[in-house]
Amino acid sequence: MSATLATTPATAPPAEPPPRVVPTRRAGQWTAAGLVLVLLALGLVSVVRNEAFQWDVVAAYFTSASVLRGLGLTLWLTALVMVLGFALGTLLAVLRLSANPVLRAVSWGYVWFFRSTPILVQLLFWFNIGALYPQILGVNTVNLLGPVAVAVLGLTLHEAAYAAEVVRGGILSVDRGQIEAAESLGLGRRRRLSRIVLPQAMRAIVPPAGNMLIGTLKGTSIVSVIAVQDLLYSTQLVYHRTYEVIPLLLVATLWYVAVTSVLGIGQHYVERHYARGTAGAR
């Protein structure tokens, strides 16, 4: 064996060179890959060549002021809804895991309700709150919430229900022994959560949260029903005027793809951060 080569005394006959490793030849794989690439290229060429897509119109509107304003709104709305939704969701998850049965039930009920009603209905409900409850605690509700505030409120409450389950799953993924170790060291409840449990839960939270972020980015387009000018609605406003439906939908689509791609790259780094200390990381 090769192990003996190293210890072969100088007087031994010259050793033959160690054998070279040759991987299995995979002719089938190469053919399949080639075929798929050719098909992809043909598809791409047909899309680029097809006049009906009106790429000149796409280019003209891609960075137009109204589209960029819509993109800006979509981005900050997504960010705000994510942050507020996860803050509320974390609270709900902690309540759900608390020892107090009433708090547990309230948290469960919240998640049940907001997950089982369509977001469209929730948005329209908040939009029409003034008709349902003209006054709440002596405050006039009719013009209290503008469309943007309704969008933030409605999307956040909905997001929180899903975030609660993601965070709860993350917390439950942390080894019980970690909490016992922290307890036996005298760490308080808050400190255990913030310093020991949540950072470890993040490994299980980040991938589904990344999914939710992308879902929320596109999901914010639902606010067009209450006339909030997000990315999609701002392109719709143009094509309602010009009838260039397909190219303007392409404008919105390309922006969604671009932003989603950037977020995917960001997620990679976030995951790497929370994987620190685990085998194979760093």
């Binding site: 022994g177 170790a181 922290a182 950072p199 470890q200 929370y274 620190r276």
Partner: peptide
């Protein structure tokens, strides 16, 4: 503890 229970992220 038998299984140490060190905090792996620290």
């Amino acid at each position: 503890f038998q299984n140490f229970h060190l905090f792996p992220h620290l």
